[in-house]
Amino acid sequence: MEAVKSKSVIVIKDLVKGFGDKVILDGFNLTVEKGSNVVILGKSGSGKSVLIKCIIGLLAPDSGSIHVFEENIPGMNEDELDQARSKIGFLFQSNALYDSMTIRENLEFPLLRHWVDIKKEEVDRLVSEALENVDLLHTLDMMPSELSGGMLKRVALARTMILRPEVILYDEPTTGLDPVTSREIENLILKLQKKNHTSSIIISHDMNCVKNTADVVVLLLEGKCYIQGTYQELEQSTDQNIKQFFE
């Protein structure tokens, strides 16, 4: 986790998002520095997933700003958003692999859409390299339904990384996995971050994952950033709202 911290890649200011009468995010602020892993911690329903969906532009906030590489996401039209999204990777909690496509096609799909003139040999090379990174080259022609939960997560991670994003948003990357596979995924996240020099926001409930991956931990409580610090700082806190996560 020797990150190069020179510049903010994500700056969120006074973010408000609600559904009907229920306010989920209520003036949330966050800054993510280049090369750092920020873990967002919070109870179920606290708005963690809503937050990263606002960052990627899947949800429109009610007010506030989200600057990714100094460009305000909420103010963008669809084409500008597509452009901005090429720098942002998103790992879904459910993996969201296209189940009618083979693993090869799953990885080729974003490549062929983004780089229209890319040659077939180059596509094959990038797909193989992405799968090699997650030790799953042998699954190239398999269908997602033939893989285990941990393998699916690794393929999803490979697909997320294939466009070489500069920022990656992880939505509960270890949820539903056994401790050994969770540890493998955490190591992969760190390995790929080191290799590609990416910055990340990781949503997690899994305290082992938080401990192993976080440079900065942010506690999301009642729609706001309740506290921000390193894992060790938060672990030593006597505040009951913080302690409950570490007990």
């Binding site: 969906k53 990627i56 597509d82 452009q83 999204r85 090429s86 998103f90 692999l97 296209y98």
Partner: peptide, 10 residues
């Protein structure tokens, strides 16, 4: 979330 995955892939 496969439709969302398409959207975030541009």
């Amino acid at each position: 979330e496969q439709i969302d995955a398409m959207t975030v892939s541009g």
